[in-house]
Simulated assay, not measured.
Amino acid sequence: MGIVLSVIWALSAFFYVRSRDIEQAGKFSSFVYSTCSEAKSAAKNYDFRECSERASKSYLDYDPGPGNAAIAALLPIPFMWLGMWLVVAVTRWVVRGFKKA
Rank of each mutant, 00 (worst) to 15 (best):
Y33M: 08
V94H: 04
E53F: 07
Y33V: 02
K40A: 05
S6M: 10
S58A: 15
L82T: 10
A55R: 01
Y62P: 00
K100A: 10
V7T: 08
V7H: 02
R96K: 13
A43V: 03
L82C: 09
M1S: 11
N68V: 08
P78H: 03
A70H: 04
V90W: 11
S37M: 05
V87I: 15
V94E: 06
F14P: 01
W85Q: 05
L82G: 08
S12A: 11
S6Y: 03
L11H: 06
I3H: 01
R92H: 07
I22V: 14
L5D: 04
I77V: 13
R96H: 12
F14A: 04
K100I: 14
S6C: 13
T91H: 10
K57G: 02
P78N: 07
L75E: 09
R49N: 11
A89F: 12
F79D: 01
A10T: 05
S56Q: 14
A43C: 06
S29D: 02
M1H: 12
M84K: 08
L60A: 12
R54Y: 13
I77K: 03
K100Y: 10
D21R: 01
K100Q: 08
S30D: 12
I8G: 01
M80G: 09
R54L: 15
A101L: 13
V94P: 02
F15G: 04
I22C: 05
W9M: 04
W85M: 10
A89I: 08
K99M: 10
W81Q: 02
M1P: 08
G83T: 06
E50A: 05
V17N: 03
E38T: 09
E23N: 06
A69E: 03
K27T: 06
S58H: 07
F79A: 05
A25Y: 07
A25D: 05
R92D: 07
R20F: 09
F31I: 00
P64T: 01
I8A: 14
P64N: 00
Y33W: 15
V94T: 07
D47R: 04
V4C: 06
I22Q: 11
Y59V: 00
R96T: 04
E23Y: 12
D61R: 06
V95A: 12
S12E: 06
A101N: 12
L11E: 09
V7L: 15
S41Q: 12
F31S: 11
A101F: 12
S29N: 04
A42M: 12
S19R: 07
F14V: 04
A70L: 15
K27W: 09
W93D: 06
G26H: 11
A70T: 10
S29M: 07
G2M: 10
S58Q: 09
Y46A: 03
N68D: 14
F48L: 13
Y46V: 05
L82P: 02
V87R: 03
P78F: 11
V95Y: 14
F28K: 05
S30I: 00
C51E: 02
V88H: 08
I3S: 09
L11M: 14
I71Q: 04
S56P: 00
K57D: 10
R54C: 08
I77H: 02
A55E: 00
Y62M: 13
W9F: 15
S41T: 14
E53W: 02
V17S: 04
V32L: 04
V7A: 15
S52F: 06
Y46R: 08
M1R: 09
P64C: 01
G65V: 09
G83D: 03
F28W: 08
I77T: 00
I8D: 00
P66F: 13
P64D: 03
S41V: 10
N45V: 06
E38Q: 14
